[in-house]
């Protein structure tokens, strides 16, 4: 979408004012309301659908497969992303996919060892993401959807023994009982920098005029990697004061917990 020069300068002046005036009147730390529905895909282990106020929408499906983790040291979580209307090899899709795979990489607080079934076998989780429509960078929305999906994912209950290195047997599962995986995935936040102001969750118009933006990953009360700066437009892109980076990380640290509680309670 292109905005006129007058619109852009109006938006830019409003957002750089102190305090910033966002076109929809949100506070700098306020996100747009979202609607979440979970567990609706009957053939997936976990699923979620998330709709943002501006009509952005994405669907996440979680499927699991048992693999022999002694044979290969591949990552136990694999993300596949599809954005409607974009080629799978377009820069946008590849960049986002690479980022999401890094977000879900095993690390302190998010150990993939939780997926281990027995000495020998593990679940491998396949996360398929479909972005049906998005007006601005969907990274944050996707991470919320992934969180809701993984949070409600249920996997078959193991009934065979854990120690199977010596005995050659395949893991056995209960016919009916399912176990909740309860894997809390990291959340990704998008933070826009406009002048000396920081705003979370910029909408399409705000993205058009922001100087720069930061993608921040957050897990369990802490900011963690990956963190990236990115520009959401190419007409207003410029550098920013390093102290804003610190302020931004702090802003996320302060408000991320509220998002987590809201997502968990839904």
């Amino acid at each position: 979408m292109t905005l006129s020069i007058a619109e852009k300068s109006y938006l830019y002046d409003s957002l750089t004012a102190s305090p910033s005036i966002r076109p929809d009147g949100r506070k700098p730390h306020q996100f747009r309301p979202i609607e979440v529905s979970t567990d609706f895909l009957p053939s997936s282990n976990g699923s979620s659908r998330i709709i943002s106020g501006d009509g952005s929408e994405c669907i996440v499906s979680v499927k699991a497969k048992v693999i022999d983790h002694t044979l290969s040291d591949e990552e136990l979580i694999q993300v596949d992303l599809d954005i409607a209307g974009e080629r799978t090899d377009s820069p946008q899709v590849e960049t986002l996919m690479s980022l999401l795979n890094k977000v879900l990489k095993s690390g302190p607080g998010f150990e993939h060892s939780r997926l281990q079934l027995t000495e020998r076998y593990s679940f491998k989780i396949f996360i398929d993401i479909l972005v049906i429509s998005s007006n601005c960078n969907p990274a944050s929305l996707i991470s919320f959807a992934m969180f809701s999906a993984l949070n409600t994912t249920t996997l078959p209950k193991l009934i065979s023994s854990f120690d199977d290195l010596k005995v050659e047997e395949l893991p056995m599962f209960d016919d009916y009982d399912l176990v909740n995986l309860k894997l809390k995935s990291p959340l990704v936040f998008l933070l826009a920098i406009v002048g000396n102001n920081l705003i979370v969750d910029p909408d399409a118009n705000e993205s058009e005029v922001c100087d720069n933006a930061i993608i921040v990953t957050w897990l369990d009360g802490k900011i963690r990697s990956p963190i990236r700066t990115l520009t959401l437009n190419n007409s207003y892109s410029k550098g920013f004061d390093p102290t804003l980076l610190q302020k931004g990380l702090k802003l996320i640290e302060e408000n991320a917990a509220a998002v987590l509680t809201a997502l968990e309670s839904s």
């Binding site: 930061i214 900011i223 990697s225 990236r228 700066t229 550098g239 980076l245 990380l249």
Partner: peptide, 30 residues
């Protein structure tokens, strides 16, 4: 693990990339 890109003698940041670890020693990295 932190990569920070600057212009204007380090007064302006134009890029920040982090792939590893937590964000505890940001000042030092900067």
């Amino acid at each position: 693990g932190d990569v920070i890109s600057f212009i204007k003698n380090g007064e302006e940041v134009i890029g920040y990339w982090k792939d590893e670890g937590n964000c505890e020693s940001f000042d030092v990295a900067l």
